[in-house]
């Protein structure tokens, strides 16, 4: 235990390592990340719960989503949380081209998410189908299967870009503000 506490004491901030071989800098992405929290609270009025679905990626995008949980990006500290059940989620992150074998599972996950169902497609594959494209086995881009609010290009996009995409998704749907949201749900459509 003593050993652990000592280790923690020496690594209070990521980037400030015990035996620094690089000058510790406050990374720009960390800075960007901390600007997001007030935005989330202003828009959602609460923390953001995200469900991720791998639609058939090469797992490169997953690695970068994982990185969001490391101490540099510290997304839990921003009130962003990955949840296990789609029913607890505000937002769906989808990676990969959607394989035909995942099409149904993805649609079901999407259906299980309560409105407003924000969807962010991650990576070149999620945006366009990427190098895998469409075929007997691949539906291609995510929007071929479910509606998408924001796309984050990159192969894979770095964690800071994914975070920026999450924030953009919150902004592109201003109707998310609680009042307007419920109002539009109950207003008969005029389309």
């Amino acid at each position: 235990m003593w050993h652990i506490l000592k280790y923690i004491a020496r690594h209070r901030r990521p980037g400030a390592s015990a035996s620094p071989t690089r000058s510790p800098t406050l990374s720009p992405s960390r800075h960007r990340a901390h600007l997001i929290h007030p935005d989330i609270l202003a828009i959602l009025g609460r923390a953001l719960a995200i469900r991720h679905v791998d639609g058939g990626s090469c797992n490169g995008c997953e690695l970068e989503i994982h990185a969001l949980n490391n101490p540099y990006y510290n997304i839990e500290g921003l009130g962003i949380k990955f949840v296990a059940s789609p029913r607890h989620a505000d937002m769906l992150l989808v990676t990969g081209p959607v394989s035909r074998h995942m099409e149904l599972a993805l649609k079901r996950t999407y259906d299980a998410i309560p409105a407003p169902k924000l969807v962010v497609a991650i990576g070149d594959c999620g945006c366009t189908g990427g190098i895998f494209g469409e075929s007997y086995a691949s539906c291609g881009r995510v929007s071929n299967v479910i509606p998408v609010d924001v796309t984050v290009p990159g192969c894979p996009p770095p964690p800071a870009d994914i975070l920026a995409g999450i924030l953009t998704a919150l902004r592109v749907r201003p109707s998310l503000a609680p009042d307007e949201g419920t109002a539009s749900d109950f207003t008969p459509g005029f389309n």
Partner: peptide
Amino acid sequence: YTHKGIERRFMGMDIDEGARLAGRVSG
């Protein structure tokens, strides 16, 4: 579940295109 037809995709590619695809079999 993640079968996306990689081996079919390779067919007909030139050597350099194939290299990009091979690098995306598993990230």
